[in-house]
Design a protein around this nucleic acid. Structure first.
Lengths: 346, 346
DNA sequence: ATGAAAGCGCTAACAA
DNA sequence: TTGTTAGCGCTTTCAT
């Protein structure tokens, strides 16, 4: 019956090595300030005691948690899980822990900022585009500013650091691809609600922009609402199927809606790409394994997670805050597969 | 030019309310031990100062971080992202933060345990089945035990708390489904490596068990290796395609491999379900939207995340450790869709 | 190069 | 019911 040993503290190590706690601390963070002999003794003592630094104490003392907070709109989305994985790798490599949160309550800004004020996280990786700029500034513009990097589909406030993909351009290219294939009757599936009227999604704007540029008619009824889920893709399919006249090509704001749309169409006897061309957005893993393989705008989501996390940590460790905001735009790429086809006789 | 206010501490609140810090602390954690009048004054002071408790200080003092650590084998996997989301919701609701980690380095047990020893997390949600039981015990059986709940495909050490699905049974039912459809030539795709020889995956065992029970031949070459990725599903497809004699039905250990397998087969002109029936495992979102819609064993992954997290927090808050280990088994469910078919003339 | 001492912000034991 | 005091484990002046 073993007596549970106490978790060793820096004092225990000091005693073992016959030095002061201050010296142990130095060995651990500024080894060059300690003589080689002492250093060796301390390391040995660390090994012997199995000492691990107490982060809570260190955080309290240093006012830095060595932890970053990642706010996600819905982790269930495979898109974000890849981003999360990339972020985690970078964070770990640089000695940071990664807290995740999603449920933001009725005061999202406060919810997030409390992590900072309460000394649980040093900075924020914001992947949740539902927070409007105003709210965002509630986080960043406070006296006790929380360092943050935003990364989502909309173009964030220029005062806020951001790492994004060129959503507007990419959406325009998606439409251009359809147009180049001879399609003129083009539909779109995207989020549509009041907040969007004042601040439309970049992918929506890209769609509108390219349609206008090419002089193509934008038909209201061909723009179907979708919250980025497969279920909403199916719903859109039902809506299109019920129409007398349908678009010959549809651009969905993400791959999951494209898949739902395809699946839904199939149930209505509408075949892709025979009857309709569909282009998605994101290039999630399943896109190339779907049938038909999905044409899509590929997003560098590993890069997104990696770069955003690196930017944040640099911010935290560099001369924080006194530089200009960081704005990084990563390129998307058109990946043509089987779900789009030249319009027959077009 | 606003001078950045200092983050208010409990002392600031105390000063405002003209009470001692201890009283403020009491109001925040044991309100009933404080008179109503004082309580009101303190609350007002909290509001005025915008006070938020300093978690680092509290953690140091109480030796509890109010944070749980979730170890995932690969968050990229959409299966786990759903579990993660469920876990996060429960954790948040019960006042816990959720740290995630994946990169476990060369000493995974130590890596995970250090979170505990260093006072960063109070307990561990272990979703990574690659840690063998021995290693696990390195985490749990230490003098400084880290409370943990394991949840993955293999049946964990009985001394360890676990929340799992009935993988072995479910796998057997998957095979039974194929057999009932008249298939006798049944293949399987699953992880295969040395560690599996000593400790085969439950889904593998379930396959073997049901095949034996029905007196069906288990052909080594029909058991293809797969690391649960779509890419490995494709690889398996290539392997099967190259065979002179192929199975008429295949059970893959997860849906992603099933999708990869289907996509791969299609490229070789092998159609599902016409030429081969395929049953997956997990029922990821895309399964029902795939073409053909995937027959699969549905796993209650939201439940899994929820129940495991609840079990862990109960453990942390209850009379921890002195009870028997918790073992919860959640049921899987057969979902028949289009990717399996009765064997023609069978 | 090393040690002594103070203090980060909180809670809990004890006193009043 | 409330206040005083000590101390969680660490880092960091300031001495030596």
């Amino acid at each position: 019956m073993e007596v549970p040993r106490k978790i060793p503290t820096i004092q225990d190590v000091a005693r073992h090595a016959k030095v002061s706690a201050a010296t142990v601390s130095r060995v651990l963070s500024n080894p060059e300030r300690v003589s080689e002999a002492t250093r060796a003794r301390v390391h040995e003592a660390v090994r012997l005691t199995g000492y691990t630094i107490n982060q809570a104490a260190r955080t309290l003392r240093m006012q830095r948690a060595k932890t970053i907070l990642m706010a996600l709109p819905g982790i269930g989305n495979p898109f974000y899980s890849t981003v999360l994985e990339a972020a985690m790798q970078v964070a770990t490599a640089r000695g940071y822990g990664l807290l995740v949160t999603g449920r933001l309550g009725d005061d999202p800004a406060r919810w997030l900022r409390d992590y900072y004020v309460s000394n649980r996280a040093d900075g924020l990786l914001l992947f949740d585009g539902t927070l409007v700029t105003q709210t965002l500034h509630g986080i960043a513009d406070d006296a006790r500013q929380m360092p943050l990097v935003a990364s989502y589909d909309d173009v964030p406030d220029p005062r806020i650091n951001s790492v994004v993909t060129d959503n507007l351009e990419a959406a325009a290219r998606a439409v251009a691809h359809l147009a180049e294939y001879g399609h003129t009757k083009i539909g779109h599936v995207n989020v549509r609600n009041e907040s969007d009227l004042t601040k439309p999604h970049q992918r929506f704007s890209g769609f509108v922009q390219e349609m206008r540029r090419r002089g193509l008619e934008i038909r209201e009824d061909w723009i179907q609402p979708g919250d980025y889920s497969m279920a909403d893709g199916r719903r859109a399919a039902a809506a299109y199927a019920a129409m007398k006249e349908r678009p010959t090509a549809i651009f969905t704001a993400n791959d999951e809606m494209a898949i739902g749309l395809l699946a839904g169409f199939r149930e209505h006897g509408i075949e892709c790409p025979r009857d309709v061309s569909i282009i998605g957005f994101d290039d999630i893993t399943v896109a190339k394994n779907y049938f038909p393989a999905l044409t899509t705008m590929s997003q560098p989501r590993v890069e997104l997670g990696r770069v955003a996390t690196e930017a944040l940590i640099n911010l935290l460790e560099g001369n924080a805050g006194d530089g200009d905001p960081v704005h990084i735009v990563l390129p998307s790429e058109l990946v043509v597969r089987q779900s789009t086809q030249r319009l027959a006789g077009g």
